[in-house]
Amino acid sequence: MKLHSKDILGMKELTPGEILLILDTADSFAEVSTRDIKKVPTLRGKTIINLFYEASTRTRTSFELAAKRLSADAINISTSTSSVVKGETLIDTARTLEAMNPDIVVIRHSASGAPHLIARMVRHSVINGGDGFHEHPTQALLDMLTIRRRKGSLKGLEVAIIGDIAHSRVAHSNIHGLTRMGCRVTVCGPAPMIPRDVEKLGVSVTCNMEEAVRNRDVVMMLRIQFERHRASFPSIREYAKFYCLNEERLALANPGALVMHPGPINRGTEIAPDIADGMQSVILEQVTNGIAVRMALLYLLSGGSP
């Protein structure tokens, strides 16, 4: 079994078979992280570079741990300044890194399509660690792994994705991935946060939170990016009033519905604290599964013919 591309750029490019392969592989890798010695020699001698143009703690740490638990050498390059400010172009940076013969480069960048630009230029594999408002495929895969481990299967599940859909790469990746695996997806948020023609991606759209949550099996909340985007809504207070996942709203969902959030959480804005810490929350499982998913991808992309 293999992936058709040397790169993981987005969920849109993955077939259902490839998604299953990744999830199944991740299921096996999950066990490694439960051992006393959380390390296997699988990728000994491989070099993985985490090239992060955006601040990130959890994704970078997750990729780093995934690489280290597979015995690969992981290097982190973090820079908050964009390549435009820095003076060196992204392509020059990519070529410089390529000259050091890495096997896989994970890139996070604030510009949509930056990983595609690099992937076209270099021989090694590129994994998109989140690009602009485009995609965050490893987040979607870990979300899907979390749902599958709890619900057994993805097929036929009702999933609500709630928040700033227009500016959420997590939402975009999950829309592609979940619909492909047979989930019915409803997106919800204030109207200015719903991107144009999103229904053409095969999802239902509502601006009413109660309607979005009612009878869902999974409620996926998104992080509101105060720091990143000009406000598409009048105030945080108003957002929280209409779109915060609280006990009353969650009660509308199916019994045992999963509460998810890619983190970091703005408590009280996107999700009430007692819900985030509650019985139905799988937010920390998402983090745990993230390592397994990233181990699976590093494994599947490593070696073989370039």
Binding site: M1, T42, G303
Partner: peptide
């Protein structure tokens, strides 16, 4: 395994 295109699951 790192030399294989088709990775064993």
């Amino acid at each position: 395994v790192t030399k294989m295109d088709n990775k064993p699951k």
